[in-house]
Computed example of a mutant assay.
Amino acid sequence: MEFKNSKYVEKMCEITNELYKHGWDERNGGNVSLRLTQDEVDQFDDLNKVIRNIPIKFDATPLAGQYYLVTGTGRYFKNVHNYPERDTGLVKITDEGNSVDLLWGFNDGGQPTSEFPAHLMTHIARQKVDSNQRVVMHCHPTNWVALSFTRNLDEKEISKLLWKMQAESLVVFPEGVGIIPYMTPGTNEIGQATADKMNEFRVVMWPHHGIFGCGDSMDEVYGLIETVEKAALIYTTIQSQGGDIKQEITDDDLRDLAKSFGVTPNPKFLSMDKVK
Protein backbone atom coordinates (compact mmCIF):
# COMPACT_ATOMS: atom_id res chain seq x y z
CA MET A 1 0.00 0.00 0.00
CA GLU A 2 1.16 3.53 -0.72
CA PHE A 3 1.26 5.90 2.21
CA LYS A 4 -1.25 8.19 0.49
CA ASN A 5 -3.88 5.49 0.94
CA SER A 6 -3.00 4.71 4.56
CA LYS A 7 -5.37 5.07 7.49
CA TYR A 8 -3.15 7.83 8.84
CA VAL A 9 -3.58 10.06 5.80
CA GLU A 10 -7.27 9.18 5.60
CA LYS A 11 -7.77 10.20 9.23
CA MET A 12 -5.85 13.44 8.70
CA CYS A 13 -8.10 14.23 5.74
CA GLU A 14 -11.23 13.41 7.73
CA ILE A 15 -10.30 15.44 10.80
CA THR A 16 -9.07 18.53 8.95
CA ASN A 17 -12.26 18.52 6.89
CA GLU A 18 -14.40 18.29 10.04
CA LEU A 19 -12.43 21.12 11.65
CA TYR A 20 -13.03 23.25 8.56
CA LYS A 21 -16.76 22.44 8.42
CA HIS A 22 -17.12 23.46 12.07
CA GLY A 23 -15.72 26.87 11.14
CA TRP A 24 -12.72 26.43 13.41
CA ASP A 25 -10.08 26.63 10.64
CA GLU A 26 -10.91 29.51 8.36
CA ARG A 27 -8.64 30.15 5.39
CA ASN A 28 -5.24 28.66 6.30
CA GLY A 29 -5.83 28.81 10.05
CA GLY A 30 -5.03 25.77 12.17
CA ASN A 31 -2.56 22.90 12.07
CA VAL A 32 -2.31 19.25 13.10
CA SER A 33 0.57 16.86 13.74
CA LEU A 34 0.48 13.11 14.30
CA ARG A 35 3.45 11.06 15.53
CA LEU A 36 3.95 7.70 13.80
CA THR A 37 6.04 4.85 15.15
CA GLN A 38 8.89 3.15 13.31
CA ASP A 39 6.77 0.00 12.85
CA GLU A 40 3.96 2.04 11.31
CA VAL A 41 6.32 3.75 8.87
CA ASP A 42 8.02 0.46 7.94
CA GLN A 43 4.73 -0.83 6.48
CA PHE A 44 5.14 1.42 3.42
CA ASP A 45 7.73 0.86 0.69
CA ASP A 46 7.39 4.41 -0.63
CA LEU A 47 8.83 5.92 2.58
CA ASN A 48 12.34 4.51 2.19
CA LYS A 49 14.08 7.55 0.76
CA VAL A 50 14.50 11.21 1.64
CA ILE A 51 12.84 13.60 -0.81
CA ARG A 52 14.50 16.71 0.64
CA ASN A 53 15.71 18.22 3.88
CA ILE A 54 13.78 21.10 5.49
CA PRO A 55 15.35 23.33 8.19
CA ILE A 56 13.26 24.13 11.26
CA LYS A 57 13.72 27.04 13.68
CA PHE A 58 13.91 24.91 16.81
CA ASP A 59 16.25 22.38 18.37
CA ALA A 60 14.13 19.23 18.30
CA THR A 61 16.98 16.91 19.37
CA PRO A 62 14.82 15.24 22.08
CA LEU A 63 12.58 13.98 19.25
CA ALA A 64 15.40 12.87 16.92
CA GLY A 65 14.35 9.92 14.78
CA GLN A 66 10.62 10.43 15.34
CA TYR A 67 8.15 10.66 12.45
CA TYR A 68 5.36 13.23 12.12
CA LEU A 69 2.53 13.58 9.63
CA VAL A 70 1.89 17.32 9.69
CA THR A 71 -0.20 19.87 7.84
CA GLY A 72 1.59 22.43 5.66
CA THR A 73 2.15 26.12 6.12
CA GLY A 74 -0.33 28.35 4.32
CA ARG A 75 -2.63 25.43 3.46
CA TYR A 76 -6.42 25.58 3.59
CA PHE A 77 -8.03 22.76 5.57
CA LYS A 78 -10.91 22.71 3.11
CA ASN A 79 -8.47 21.37 0.50
CA VAL A 80 -6.57 18.73 2.47
CA HIS A 81 -8.97 15.87 1.73
CA ASN A 82 -8.63 16.51 -2.00
CA TYR A 83 -4.88 17.19 -2.04
CA PRO A 84 -3.30 15.35 0.91
CA GLU A 85 0.03 14.80 -0.87
CA ARG A 86 0.30 18.53 -1.47
CA ASP A 87 -1.06 19.93 1.80
CA THR A 88 0.45 17.46 4.29
CA GLY A 89 3.80 15.77 4.66
CA LEU A 90 5.49 12.98 6.58
CA VAL A 91 8.79 14.11 8.07
CA LYS A 92 11.50 12.57 10.24
CA ILE A 93 13.36 14.65 12.81
CA THR A 94 17.08 14.51 12.01
CA ASP A 95 19.70 13.53 14.58
CA GLU A 96 20.92 17.12 14.66
CA GLY A 97 17.41 18.26 15.58
CA ASN A 98 17.50 21.47 13.52
CA SER A 99 15.86 20.06 10.39
CA VAL A 100 13.51 17.34 9.15
CA ASP A 101 13.80 14.87 6.30
CA LEU A 102 10.72 14.83 4.07
CA LEU A 103 9.67 11.27 3.23
CA TRP A 104 6.28 11.93 1.64
CA GLY A 105 4.01 14.84 0.71
CA PHE A 106 4.50 18.59 0.23
CA ASN A 107 4.89 17.69 -3.45
CA ASP A 108 4.68 21.31 -4.60
CA GLY A 109 7.67 22.38 -2.50
CA GLY A 110 5.73 23.14 0.66
CA GLN A 111 6.87 22.93 4.27
CA PRO A 112 5.38 22.04 7.67
CA THR A 113 3.13 24.56 9.39
CA SER A 114 4.78 27.67 10.81
CA GLU A 115 3.57 26.45 14.21
CA PHE A 116 5.57 23.20 13.85
CA PRO A 117 8.13 24.28 16.50
CA ALA A 118 5.23 24.87 18.92
CA HIS A 119 3.89 21.41 18.07
CA LEU A 120 7.28 19.82 18.67
CA MET A 121 7.68 21.58 22.00
CA THR A 122 4.29 20.24 23.06
CA HIS A 123 5.17 16.74 21.85
CA ILE A 124 8.33 16.87 23.97
CA ALA A 125 6.38 17.99 27.04
CA ARG A 126 3.51 15.53 26.66
CA GLN A 127 5.72 12.50 25.95
CA LYS A 128 7.32 13.09 29.35
CA VAL A 129 3.85 12.99 30.93
CA ASP A 130 2.47 10.10 28.84
CA SER A 131 4.49 8.23 26.22
CA ASN A 132 1.26 7.35 24.38
CA GLN A 133 0.56 10.98 23.50
CA ARG A 134 1.00 11.46 19.76
CA VAL A 135 -1.34 14.17 18.44
CA VAL A 136 -1.24 17.96 18.68
CA MET A 137 -4.08 20.01 17.20
CA HIS A 138 -4.46 23.79 16.90
CA CYS A 139 -7.60 25.54 15.67
CA HIS A 140 -9.82 28.57 16.31
CA PRO A 141 -13.13 27.54 17.98
CA THR A 142 -15.38 30.60 17.90
CA ASN A 143 -17.00 30.53 21.34
CA TRP A 144 -13.78 29.48 23.04
CA VAL A 145 -11.96 32.46 21.54
CA ALA A 146 -14.85 34.75 22.56
CA LEU A 147 -14.39 33.69 26.20
CA SER A 148 -10.90 35.17 26.15
CA PHE A 149 -12.42 38.60 25.47
CA THR A 150 -15.28 38.52 27.99
CA ARG A 151 -13.92 36.54 30.95
CA ASN A 152 -10.88 36.93 33.17
CA LEU A 153 -7.90 34.95 31.87
CA ASP A 154 -7.90 32.85 35.02
CA GLU A 155 -7.46 29.08 34.70
CA LYS A 156 -9.64 28.21 37.70
CA GLU A 157 -12.43 30.57 36.66
CA ILE A 158 -12.53 29.38 33.03
CA SER A 159 -12.13 25.70 33.93
CA LYS A 160 -14.97 25.70 36.44
CA LEU A 161 -17.16 27.72 34.10
CA LEU A 162 -16.72 25.11 31.37
CA TRP A 163 -17.17 22.21 33.81
CA LYS A 164 -20.50 23.66 34.90
CA MET A 165 -21.87 24.15 31.39
CA GLN A 166 -22.40 20.41 30.81
CA ALA A 167 -21.80 17.19 32.71
CA GLU A 168 -19.42 15.83 30.05
CA SER A 169 -16.85 18.58 30.56
CA LEU A 170 -15.48 17.40 33.91
CA VAL A 171 -15.30 13.82 32.65
CA VAL A 172 -13.47 14.74 29.43
CA PHE A 173 -10.99 17.29 30.82
CA PRO A 174 -10.87 16.89 34.63
CA GLU A 175 -7.52 18.68 34.79
CA GLY A 176 -9.20 21.83 33.46
CA VAL A 177 -7.65 24.16 30.88
CA GLY A 178 -4.39 26.07 30.82
CA ILE A 179 -4.11 29.69 29.72
CA ILE A 180 -1.12 31.66 28.48
CA PRO A 181 -0.98 35.45 27.98
CA TYR A 182 -1.64 36.85 24.52
CA MET A 183 1.51 36.27 22.47
CA THR A 184 2.49 36.60 18.82
CA PRO A 185 1.71 33.32 17.02
CA GLY A 186 4.31 31.46 15.00
CA THR A 187 7.09 32.18 17.47
CA ASN A 188 9.18 29.87 19.64
CA GLU A 189 8.15 31.98 22.63
CA ILE A 190 4.48 31.08 22.33
CA GLY A 191 5.47 27.48 21.67
CA GLN A 192 7.51 27.26 24.86
CA ALA A 193 4.81 28.94 26.95
CA THR A 194 2.30 26.43 25.60
CA ALA A 195 4.59 23.47 26.22
CA ASP A 196 5.12 24.60 29.81
CA LYS A 197 1.36 24.50 30.35
CA MET A 198 1.17 21.08 28.70
CA ASN A 199 3.02 19.63 31.68
CA GLU A 200 -0.31 19.89 33.49
CA PHE A 201 -3.05 20.35 30.88
CA ARG A 202 -4.09 18.79 27.55
CA VAL A 203 -5.87 21.96 26.46
CA VAL A 204 -4.29 25.42 26.38
CA MET A 205 -5.99 28.71 25.49
CA TRP A 206 -4.23 31.15 23.21
CA PRO A 207 -6.25 34.27 24.12
CA HIS A 208 -7.93 36.08 21.22
CA HIS A 209 -6.61 33.38 18.87
CA GLY A 210 -7.40 29.72 19.47
CA ILE A 211 -6.72 26.46 21.22
CA PHE A 212 -3.94 23.89 21.49
CA GLY A 213 -5.00 20.34 22.34
CA CYS A 214 -3.16 17.04 22.57
CA GLY A 215 -3.83 13.35 23.17
CA ASP A 216 -3.39 9.75 22.09
CA SER A 217 -5.35 9.81 18.83
CA MET A 218 -6.86 12.17 16.27
CA ASP A 219 -10.38 11.27 17.39
CA GLU A 220 -9.55 11.82 21.06
CA VAL A 221 -8.06 15.28 20.52
CA TYR A 222 -10.83 16.32 18.14
CA GLY A 223 -13.38 15.16 20.72
CA LEU A 224 -11.54 17.00 23.48
CA ILE A 225 -11.63 20.29 21.59
CA GLU A 226 -15.22 19.63 20.50
CA THR A 227 -16.28 19.19 24.14
CA VAL A 228 -14.50 22.37 25.25
CA GLU A 229 -16.10 24.35 22.45
CA LYS A 230 -19.56 22.89 23.15
CA ALA A 231 -19.29 24.07 26.76
CA ALA A 232 -18.24 27.53 25.56
CA LEU A 233 -21.17 27.54 23.11
CA ILE A 234 -23.61 26.75 25.91
CA TYR A 235 -22.22 29.70 27.87
CA THR A 236 -22.59 31.94 24.81
CA THR A 237 -26.19 30.78 24.39
CA ILE A 238 -26.97 31.48 28.04
CA GLN A 239 -25.61 35.00 27.66
CA SER A 240 -27.65 35.54 24.49
CA GLN A 241 -30.76 34.54 26.44
CA GLY A 242 -30.05 37.24 29.01
CA GLY A 243 -27.54 35.46 31.22
CA ASP A 244 -30.03 35.03 34.07
CA ILE A 245 -29.20 31.52 35.36
CA LYS A 246 -32.06 30.00 37.39
CA GLN A 247 -30.27 26.75 38.24
CA GLU A 248 -26.78 25.35 37.75
CA ILE A 249 -24.39 22.45 38.24
CA THR A 250 -22.96 23.10 41.71
CA ASP A 251 -19.54 22.26 43.14
CA ASP A 252 -21.14 19.37 45.02
CA ASP A 253 -22.65 18.15 41.75
CA LEU A 254 -19.18 18.24 40.19
CA ARG A 255 -17.77 16.22 43.11
CA ASP A 256 -20.52 13.61 42.76
CA LEU A 257 -19.89 13.48 39.00
CA ALA A 258 -16.16 12.97 39.50
CA LYS A 259 -16.77 10.19 42.01
CA SER A 260 -19.29 8.47 39.75
CA PHE A 261 -17.02 8.52 36.69
CA GLY A 262 -13.77 7.84 38.52
CA VAL A 263 -12.00 11.04 37.52
CA THR A 264 -9.99 13.41 39.69
CA PRO A 265 -10.63 17.13 39.20
CA ASN A 266 -7.66 19.44 39.33
CA PRO A 267 -7.33 19.96 43.12
CA LYS A 268 -6.31 23.59 42.56
CA PHE A 269 -9.75 24.18 41.04
CA LEU A 270 -12.01 21.84 43.02
CA SER A 271 -11.34 20.01 46.28
CA MET A 272 -12.81 16.52 46.67
CA ASP A 273 -12.73 16.76 50.49
CA LYS A 274 -16.47 17.41 50.63
CA VAL A 275 -17.53 14.32 48.66
CA LYS A 276 -20.57 12.82 50.35
Rank of each mutant, 00 (worst) to 15 (best):
K274G: 08
A64P: 06
E96P: 06
E200G: 10
P117R: 11
S240L: 03
L63H: 13
G29C: 11
G223M: 11
E18G: 03
L34I: 01
T150G: 12
L47D: 02
A125V: 04
G213Q: 04
F58E: 14
N82H: 13
C139P: 03
F173N: 03
F58Q: 13
E155M: 05
R52E: 12
T264F: 12
Y8F: 15
E85W: 11
P174L: 08
P207F: 00
T73V: 12
N5R: 09
Q111W: 12
E155K: 01
G262W: 03
G262T: 13
D87V: 06
N132F: 08
F3K: 00
K160I: 10
T250I: 11
N199E: 14
G23M: 01
F261R: 06
Q247D: 14
I234Y: 14
V32M: 08
L170P: 03
G89K: 04
N132R: 09
K156P: 01
F149E: 00
P207H: 01
R202Q: 13
A232N: 06
C13Q: 15
F212I: 07
I211F: 08
S240D: 08
V32R: 02
G30H: 15
Q111M: 07
L147Q: 05
M12C: 10
V135N: 02
N79L: 15
V91T: 08
I15N: 02
V177C: 04
K259C: 13
